[in-house]
Simulated scan of single mutants.
Amino acid sequence: MPRTAPAATTSAPTRRHLLLAGAFGVASLAALGTLAPARADDAVWTEEFLTRAETREGFLVDAMDEWQVENAKFIIAVIKGHGLDEQAATITLATAIVESWLRNYEPAVDLDSGGLFQQRPSMGWGTYDEVRHKKRAVDAFLGLGDHSQAPGLTQLSPDYHQWGPGAAAQAVQISAHPERYAEQMPAAKTLWDRYAADVAPYTD
């Protein structure tokens, strides 16, 4: 899929807020505060967070916006909730970086693909809404989602610890550019090291 140049980090209001303000026309910038990740003080992952439409502007591991950070943390939380380890997390994170720059991509611009992993309903990954629901998308990628008929990581490469970097991700994604997953493994490892210790397992 085509990629645009990574977005620069800006002060408030953020570039994302300005883009959204343009998209919604007369909506005031003050109202855009409600578009921050819908996560309560007690760290509950809400349904709004799991399904909210987002834009995709770019990815730099040290210039991530609030959505990218929260999506990385959420992936780690789901991985831990399934009792899986760092290797599973880095494979999953690297895949989401490649496919969506850690944004829950809403428009179907590449055939019918969408969501964090650009999963396609026509290929058995779930419905239009399910591939854009973050928990279901992560579960499907892992091969642990009852809603998905497509095989995932734990089904295609249960011995993924023995696989080369990126190979396990490619087994699931069947990408035309398999080398891209290995390229993002260092960034994925950085995200795990940065956030894993402070993220509780998510099992809902």
Rank of each mutant, 00 (worst) to 15 (best):
A188C: 08
S113Q: 10
F117H: 11
F24A: 10
H133C: 03
S113P: 02
W125R: 09
A137D: 06
E183D: 08
H133M: 10
V138G: 13
A150H: 15
T154N: 14
D139Q: 12
R180E: 06
K134C: 03
A200N: 10
Q173I: 03
A196P: 11
T10A: 13
N104T: 01
K189Q: 15
V138A: 05
A94C: 11
E106S: 08
M123Q: 15
R15Y: 13
Y160G: 09
G81T: 05
K80V: 08
G22H: 05
T34S: 14
L191P: 10
Q68V: 03
L102I: 04
L35H: 05
L29S: 00
E130D: 12
A89C: 11
P2I: 07
A188E: 12
R180P: 04
I91V: 11
A63V: 09
N71K: 04
I91T: 09
T154G: 10
Q173V: 01
A176W: 07
A96D: 13
S11R: 14
H177D: 03
P165L: 04
A31S: 13
A23H: 10
H17A: 15
N71C: 07
A94K: 07
A5M: 08
P6K: 09
A137P: 13
A21R: 14
D204A: 13
G126I: 03
T127K: 15
Q87I: 13
A188Y: 10
Q170N: 14
P6R: 12
R103A: 02
Q162A: 15
K73V: 05
L35I: 03
W192A: 07
A40I: 11
D110C: 11
L50W: 02
D42S: 13
I76A: 04
V69F: 01
P37V: 01
A88I: 13
K189E: 15
D146K: 13
S175R: 05
Q68R: 12
K189N: 14
E99M: 12
T10D: 00
A12R: 15
N104Q: 06
